[in-house]
């Protein structure tokens, strides 16, 4: 009798400790994955600000073709405004759309540059293109890292026991991927040298 009671208490004690540790590690894992997404999101935000600054500089550099310049400049500023509004409203879809809009503005700006031979021969042109390639490369990497974090989180909360912990601790069921329009994720192919 005494032996059976000890075994039962032992098993219950073991289960309590086991589930207690599982809950703590499960919660900590969720926090880590959630924070990782927040970090990667802030990185995209930082890179988008950098790109905006670079594009503004670029647009200013194409002085001389007023009509085109104004149109592209308007695109850049409206994309920036759309991004700021979407961000203020916590509208991820709107932010992704604004990101795509900026990519389109960038492509138009590059096309404008390509049509202007005298501009291409200036040293400033090469510098601007380097700046564009650098920031697009960094932005592309920031999006990839964000999506990897989202994939990691989504997979965890859809599988057992993550699904249990997520609902128990009231975490988001899933995060949205940062999917920009087709072609917008690609780094512009700028060829230098010979």
């Amino acid at each position: 009798m005494k032996k059976t009671a000890i075994i039962i208490i032992g098993v219950i004690g073991f289960l309590v400790i086991f589930f207690g540790i599982s809950l703590i590690t499960g919660y900590n894992k969720l926090v880590d994955k959630d924070e990782s997404i927040n970090f990667e999101y802030s990185e995209i935000d930082r890179r988008l600000q950098q790109r905006y600054d670079t594009l503004t500089q670029l647009a200013t550099a194409v002085n001389g073709f007023q009509a085109h310049e104004q149109a592209v400049y308007d695109m850049i500023t409206s994309a920036r405004a759309a991004y700021a509004t979407a961000k203020a409203n916590g509208d991820l879809e709107g932010m992704i759309e604004a990101d795509s809009l900026q990519s389109i503005a960038l492509a138009d700006l590059l096309a404008l540059f390509e049509d202007n031979i005298p501009l291409q021969t200036t040293e400033a042109y090469g510098d601007y293109m380097d700046a564009v390639w650098g920031i697009e490369s960094a932005l592309s990497e920031a999006r990839r890292q964000y999506n990897l974090s989202v994939q990691d989180y989504n997979t965890y909360v859809r599988r057992f026991p993550g699904v249990f912990y997520a609902s128990l601790f009231n975490f988001d069921n899933e995060f949205e991927y940062w999917r920009v329009g087709e072609g917008a994720t690609e780094i512009p192919d700028i060829v230098f040298g010979n």
Binding site: E43, R47, D130, W133, G134, I135, S137, A138, L139, S140, E141, A142, V191, F192, G193, N194
Partner: peptide, 10 residues
Amino acid sequence: SGGMGIRRRR
């Protein structure tokens, strides 16, 4: 690294 850099083709 956060992907910032530069590339040149020969």
